[in-house]
Design a binder for these strands. Sequence first.
DNA 1: TCAAAAGTGTTCTTATTACACCCATGG
DNA 2: CCATGGGTGTAATAAGAACACTTTTGA
Lengths: 230, 230
Amino acid sequence: MNQDLSKYFTLAVSIDCVVFGFDGKDLKVLLIERGEVPFKDYWALPGDLMKPDKDLDDSVNHILKELTGLSNLFFEQVETFGETQRHPLGRVITTGYYTLIKIGDYELNPSSFASKAKWFKVKKVKDLAFDHDKILKSCFKRLQKSVRTRPIGFELLPPTFTLTELQSLYEAILGVKMDIRNFRKKILQMKFLMETGDLQENVSHRPAKLYKFDEEKYEMLKNKGFNFEV
Amino acid sequence: MNQDLSKYFTLAVSIDCVVFGFDGKDLKVLLIERGEVPFKDYWALPGDLMKPDKDLDDSVNHILKELTGLSNLFFEQVETFGETQRHPLGRVITTGYYTLIKIGDYELNPSSFASKAKWFKVKKVKDLAFDHDKILKSCFKRLQKSVRTRPIGFELLPPTFTLTELQSLYEAILGVKMDIRNFRKKILQMKFLMETGDLQENVSHRPAKLYKFDEEKYEMLKNKGFNFEV
DNA sequence: TCAAAAGTGTTCTTATTACACCCATGG
DNA sequence: CCATGGGTGTAATAAGAACACTTTTGA
């Protein structure tokens, strides 16, 4: 930090949110349609410039709420993108965050410059505004890493779920097929699932047992981590 | 991005470099003594404000060279710190990067506002300028994670080394003692080490065999990753 | 009675752990 | 001949991978 500081204080910082959800079949990501320039009418990650008087990490939820109505989520910071040409209106460095939520627990209320908000299959997404394809890819990779070293599920599944739904979630995130018997063996021996005693209803096949997360054991495992190889 | 953009373009972005080295016994980190305010005479991570016309990732090596003389290293981005009060001269968001090098392969030439540059044992470091304790901790954690999923060593050891030196490196990074026989078994079966045929000299005990990395296999494993449990 | 998904065990192979003694050198 | 760190193998246990048939329901 030498001479003439003022020329350095000329950048903006933005935040982009990658909100992952699961509909029982596909892994999805929440996008907004931009109602303003730049990239008007493009689909984009919910994101905006950070107010200069706010902490970076604290701004994530404010920005997401403003655009989509979703609030109070737990985000993990992933990567910061700082190419000179990434934003057409000036020098904007952006930090990407991701979170996991249950689709359906939250109502989407697009506002501000978001004209729409909608869930898209992660695998189908492309041609987003700015460098958002890159940010999404980076966050998706981080999610894939995380899923192997700590339990994920609670955040993405309804309160009770079948083992097949949980397996589908892991398969959707990791993009692989797993052996049904080995998956069940592995996941049950971790002891963070409890049978509810209830069964699926109105399915035209043998109804599956419904499970829920034992929150206490689940939080314990989340903190200490584990190794889920596939 | 709505109304009055100019009030957003008032931030500076800085970069802080965590350069890890190994002296055969302890894991070390390179620090500079700051010759200028703020935090004059404090030890700090080498870091500086980014020039607004440069890419973020590209600035890392420029900044490190300016302060320490080290150039052309491969950095991994770790985390961005953006608390409002983290810098006394204004709103500065900083991104932390880390790299691994062989101490001794590089000559330290402190310049610019770095009055000194020196290696410190990672475990002993505290009371750094700004929030650098936090940045160092974050990068150290990332290093510990990385070491379990891909080979590390080449960057930190001399061209030829003994298995005990390699084991000491892993123990220094992970902060655990490992079984000598199991360590050797595991590391040798990965096939990225080659015997040089030479032995240690001038040691007052049985001289150890010297190994080197099989660069081809080593790069392969680095790209595809592996699982090194301890 | 058919279609569709649920549910269940065993065997084989591989990886991990724990553990103790002799060897080669310099001083 | 002593001190120092180098070097080696095996047995027991645990984890992972591969694999096929029966059950329950609604239509």
